[in-house]
Computed example of a mutant assay.
Amino acid sequence: MGLFTVALAGAGAVGAFFAAPVVLAGVGFTSAGIAAGSYAAGMMSAAAVANGGAVAAGSTVAVLQAAGAAGLPAAVSAVAAGVGATVGWITARLV
């Protein structure tokens, strides 16, 4: 792995940092809750049907809504996790 790969990984992390809140809001996970008629509402409905009427804590829908409600701080932790995984993978390949 070269410097170019590391630069691309860093650029991807920065892009994800700024895109995450926009993408979450775009699919319906907003700071005010799940938007009616959105993709997120469909996900929530399917999760509720599968779980007997409730959305399970820690499920994908619950985590995405928490991130949508938190906005940028949730995006920061997600990007930090992604960068850490990428750096670990690159380091393992170089050693």
Rank of each mutant, 00 (worst) to 15 (best):
residue 64 L to P: 08
residue 78 A to V: 08
residue 24 L to D: 12
residue 81 A to H: 03
residue 65 Q to K: 08
residue 13 A to R: 01
residue 34 I to P: 03
residue 36 A to M: 04
residue 5 T to Q: 05
residue 33 G to R: 06
residue 17 F to V: 09
residue 89 W to D: 09
residue 72 L to T: 14
residue 70 A to Y: 04
residue 24 L to E: 11
residue 70 A to D: 14
residue 91 T to C: 08
residue 86 T to N: 06
residue 70 A to R: 03
residue 77 S to P: 02
residue 87 V to H: 08
residue 74 A to S: 13
residue 7 A to T: 10
residue 61 V to L: 08
residue 26 G to S: 06
residue 54 A to Y: 12
residue 66 A to R: 00
residue 58 G to Q: 13
residue 7 A to N: 04
residue 73 P to H: 09
residue 35 A to K: 04
residue 70 A to P: 05
residue 6 V to C: 04
residue 21 P to R: 13
residue 4 F to K: 06
residue 60 T to S: 07
residue 95 V to L: 09
residue 75 A to T: 06
residue 95 V to K: 02
residue 62 A to N: 06
residue 26 G to I: 01
residue 4 F to R: 05
residue 56 A to H: 10
residue 41 A to E: 15
residue 14 V to T: 10
residue 8 L to T: 12
residue 88 G to L: 14
residue 14 V to A: 11
residue 40 A to E: 03
residue 80 A to Y: 14
residue 30 T to V: 05
residue 3 L to S: 09
residue 65 Q to Y: 09
residue 42 G to F: 05
residue 44 M to S: 14
residue 46 A to F: 01
residue 17 F to S: 03
residue 37 G to D: 01
residue 39 Y to A: 07
residue 54 A to G: 05
residue 38 S to E: 07
residue 5 T to H: 01
residue 61 V to A: 00
residue 5 T to N: 04
residue 90 I to C: 01
residue 9 A to W: 03
residue 61 V to M: 03
residue 45 S to W: 00
residue 58 G to E: 15
residue 72 L to F: 13
residue 30 T to Q: 09
residue 76 V to H: 02
residue 5 T to K: 00
residue 52 G to A: 12
residue 9 A to R: 08
residue 50 A to I: 06
residue 29 F to N: 01
residue 81 A to W: 05
residue 81 A to Y: 12
residue 69 A to M: 07
residue 92 A to Q: 13
residue 67 A to N: 04
residue 16 A to I: 04
residue 86 T to I: 12
residue 61 V to F: 00
residue 75 A to M: 07
residue 92 A to R: 03
residue 17 F to E: 08
residue 55 V to E: 07
residue 16 A to Y: 01
residue 45 S to E: 15
residue 49 V to P: 01
residue 13 A to M: 09
residue 1 M to L: 12
residue 4 F to I: 11
residue 66 A to T: 12
residue 39 Y to T: 09
residue 48 A to N: 10
residue 50 A to L: 10
residue 45 S to R: 02
residue 62 A to S: 14
residue 23 V to G: 00
residue 89 W to A: 13
residue 15 G to N: 09
residue 29 F to T: 05
residue 76 V to M: 07
residue 3 L to R: 08
residue 25 A to G: 14
residue 2 G to C: 04
residue 33 G to E: 14
residue 58 G to M: 12
residue 20 A to Q: 00
residue 1 M to I: 11
residue 89 W to S: 11
residue 80 A to Q: 10
residue 17 F to P: 01
